[in-house]
Structure formats: C-alpha cells, structure tokens
C-alpha cells in the first residue's frame, strides 16, 4: 500500500479532499463503518503509512478493530492482539498518543504485540486517541515499514483525521446525549461483525480472499448508493444472492 511520499502541496490538497469527502458522507443516514474505512485509507495515502486501522472501545474495558486498510489475516491479528497489549491499548487507557520510533526496542514492553508487528515487517507505529470530552472512545493506529516518527505537521494530520472519525461516529447530537455514544458504538461494533460474516459468504461463493471480498461488498454498496452494513446483512440472511454482488457491473465489462 505504501507509495512515495506526496509533496507538501499535493498532500495539502489531498487532505482537503479527504476532509471534504468525509464531511459529505456525514449526512443524515450515513454508514459509520464505511466512513471509518475511507478514513483509514486516507491515512495510508496521506501519511505514507503501510497500514492504518481504527479500534473502538467496546465499553467493557476492551478494544475492537472496526476498520483496517488491509484485510490480510496477518494485519487483522496485529489489531486483535491489541485488545490486551500494544500501542493502541496503551493509548486508549491513557488517552495520550503513543508514538514508537523503533519497535525493535519495545519487545519487553509488548512481548506479544512487538514480535508480531516486527515479523510483519513493521518498524514504527503511531497511535492517537479519539477523544470526546474526558472519554477516549477509540484509537487511530498507523504502521510503517520505516523507523522514525512522523513530523509534527504530519501528526497534526493524523489527529485531525482521528477527530473527524470521532465526529463521524458520534454525530453532533451525540455530543449532547451521553447514552447515544453507547448506542452508536454498540451498533458500529455489531455492523463490523455483520460485514465479517458477509465477507465470508462472498469469499466462499466467489473464491476470493477476505480483502477482495470486502472490496466487492463495498463496491456493490457504493454503486447502489446503499449502506455497507445493510448490504452485508442481506447477504448473510440470504436476501441478496452472492452471485448478484459478485457479478461485474455493466461499466466494468
């Protein structure tokens, strides 16, 4: 996923584009999981990261991954292990950013996470909190192949995207009603599960890997202007046949 670093003006224009696109998606009946996926993909492009992922508090003392830029099983495990240790975990519990310039020096600090990340070819990691008042509702995580930290300016971009994600999840009305945070978080977490189930259906029916299955599902939802979670649910319940989702759109022929 990692390409050459974009120039400053190019990046500024991309950032602006990303924020406008995200703002556009935050209409009345928007798709939270889709918005979060766009956001992690923007992170990868804007910051020359290899992988980005977003974890949300499950409000039971744990963290769950809800969006990640690469659907490979190995990447997924990198987030899963952070339910109990790692930069995301520390970031969520302290509410402070956790910036690691060289993961090879942190094996003692994170005996499960660090070796797994190093084996995946990652050398540095940045985790920034998604904060709402005094509560940390999740973290945005960037993995890079290179050692070293992002510049302050880049870090500001990450924080801006994390704040955008927070707004994306909570909407304006949520900020006034505490219990809506719970409604939104719990719904997003279950939507993620539905999407995983639907990916499995498409992966088997179309002989795809999980990443291809996800892109197929999202392509179908976007093409029809539908919510990702709704399409996923119909696929799992058998209301939408996998062949229909898998068949190429007329424009692709």
């Amino acid at each position: 996923m990692s390409g050459s670093a974009p120039s400053r003006t190019e990046r500024e224009s991309r950032l602006l584009h990303a924020l406008v696109e995200l703002a556009d998606t935050l209409v009345d009946d928007y798709d939270v999981v889709d918005v979060l996926h766009r956001l992690v993909e923007h992170c990868v492009q804007l910051l020359d990261a290899t992988v980005a992922g977003l974890m949300l508090s499950d409000q039971r003392g744990g963290l769950r991954v809800v969006a990640y830029s690469s659907a490979q099983t190995r990447t997924l495990e990198l987030f899963q292990v952070q339910a109990s240790e790692g930069p995301c975990y520390d970031c969520a519990h302290s509410g402070e950013a956790v910036l690691v310039a060289d993961l090879s020096k942190e094996v003692q600090r994170w005996p499960r996470f660090a070796p797994l990340a190093l084996a995946g070819g990652f050398a540095s990691v940045h985790a920034v909190p998604m904060r709402l008042r005094r509560e940390t509702i999740g973290t945005l995580n960037l993995f890079r192949h290179e050692t070293g930290l992002l510049s302050d300016e880049d870090l500001l971009v990450v924080r801006t995207l994390a704040d955008t994600a927070t707004i994306g999840i909570l909407q304006e009305r949520a900020i006034r009603r505490g219990e809506v945070v719970t409604e939104q978080l719990q719904m997003a977490l279950n939507s993620r599960v539905v999407i995983e189930q639907a990916k499995g259906v498409l992966a088997f029916a179309g002989n795809l890997d999980m990443e291809q299955a996800f892109h197929t599902l999202r392509g179908y939802a976007r093409n029809g202007g539908r919510r990702l979670a709704d399409v996923a649910r119909e696929v799992v319940l058998g209301e939408l046949r996998p062949e229909v989702v898998l068949s190429p759109r007329p424009t692709d022929l």
Binding site: D58, G62, L63, R64, V65, T73, L76, Q80, V81, A83, R192, V193, E196, Q197, A198, K199, G200, V201, L202, A203, F204, A205, M210, V236, L237, G238, P242
Partner: peptide, 22 residues
C-alpha cells in the same frame, strides 16, 4: 468475545458452502 473476526468470516463461508442459516 473481541478479536474473533475470523469466527464471523468462517461463519459466512460455512453458510455459503452448505446453504444454511448463519
């Protein structure tokens, strides 16, 4: 419990393979 995404993915694969409910 958290961190069981593969269980959900496998559930989808099994339901597609066998034509049964989730």
């Amino acid at each position: 419990s958290p961190g069981r995404e593969q269980v959900h993915q496998a559930t989808g694969m099994v339901l597609a393979a066998l034509g049964i409910s989730a």
